[in-house]
């Protein structure tokens, strides 16, 4: 796996922050400021999404953002230029997330090699399962020194999960809900139980995301996973209050992860109704 990812998880035991950003949203220049700002505000790892017209795993917030970014002219080429231009200045590692068709259109291998050249440490491709013929992203990424980050959810069979774990080198991305991306009010028991199930099967670092929208959610995940992923909520914040609100939220999250862990257990806000599992 990419060494930068190893480093992310080797530092201390506190909860890490992976923050999502959509390249070209609302435009290239702002998204560049956004990325740099996330790094300065305490993100440990940045997930940069390349827009696609039909983002299957994304809820209304990120889908609308994809459409706006495309309307404002983002292309994969401009995306790689952006990545290339910031990679020297980046103080934290970053990974790329996009849908299979974007990589397919430029050639899967070319996409992977360009990603590696642009400084990415890993790739997330939510609509490319590991077992589709002719599309072995894991092997291809390995050749270029990138980690593939699989996204898994409750409901997955244990045999499938084992196969995925055997291929995974960086970390595993667990969705807290079986659903599409989008901020939610609370974290349901189903997600926490699934984390437990995965934890018992692997010593890989675990990240959890989908729906995180409050610092209080972090308390709930503290000690259960190694990293949290924050996505849609940032775009919602940007929409209502601008980039500074996004960065302030990340700063608050960062501060939260530094708190004494024993105290966090007294917080019960944001915990889903346990009967709903």
């Amino acid at each position: 796996m990419a060494d930068e990812l190893k480093d992310v998880f080797s530092k201390k035991k506190k909860l890490k922050l992976m923050t999502h950003v959509l390249a070209g949203y609302p435009d290239l220049k702002t998204s560049q400021e956004w990325i740099m700002g996330l790094a300065e505000s305490g993100a440990d790892l940045i997930e940069i999404q390349i827009p696609f017209s039909d983002p299957l795993a994304d809820g209304p917030t990120i889908m609308a953002a994809n459409h706006l970014a495309l309307k404002n002219g983002i292309t994969p080429q401009k995306f790689f230029e952006l990545a290339w231009s910031i990679k020297g200045a980046m103080t934290v590692p970053f990974i790329f997330m996009t849908y299979a068709n974007i990589a397919y259109a430029m050639g899967m291998e070319r996409f992977v090699s360009l990603s590696a050249e642009s400084g990415a440490s890993g790739l997330i491709m939510p609509d490319l399962p590991f077992d589709e013929r002719n599309f072995d992203l894991f092997s291809c990424a390995k050749k270029y020194g990138l980690s593939v980050i699989p996204v898994v959810s409750a409901g997955i069979s244990s045999s499938r999960l084992k196969k995925i774990l055997n291929r995974t080198e960086g970390f595993l991305y667990i969705t807290l809900r079986v659903g599409i991306t989008g901020a939610v009010k609370r974290i349901e028991r189903e997600g926490l139980e699934f984390i437990q199930r995965v934890r018992e099967m692997t010593s890989l670092p675990l990240a959890a995301g989908f729906g995180i929208s409050s610092e209080k959610h972090l308390d709930l995940l503290q000690g259960k996973v190694d990293m949290v992923v924050i996505g849609s909520h940032l775009i919602d914040l940007f929409h209502s209050s601008g980039l500074s609100a996004v960065l302030n939220f990340i700063k608050r999250c960062k501060a939260r992860t530094r708190r004494d862990r024993t105290r966090s257990h007294t917080y019960h806000h944001g915990i889903g109704r346990l009967s709903q599992g």
Partner: peptide, 18 residues
């Protein structure tokens, strides 16, 4: 068995596979 020649497959998020 999911393909017709090169076409078809099951390109969905893992959560749809079950």
């Amino acid at each position: 068995h999911r393909y017709f020649g090169e076409y078809g497959g099951r390109f969905v998020p893992e959560m749809l596979i079950p």
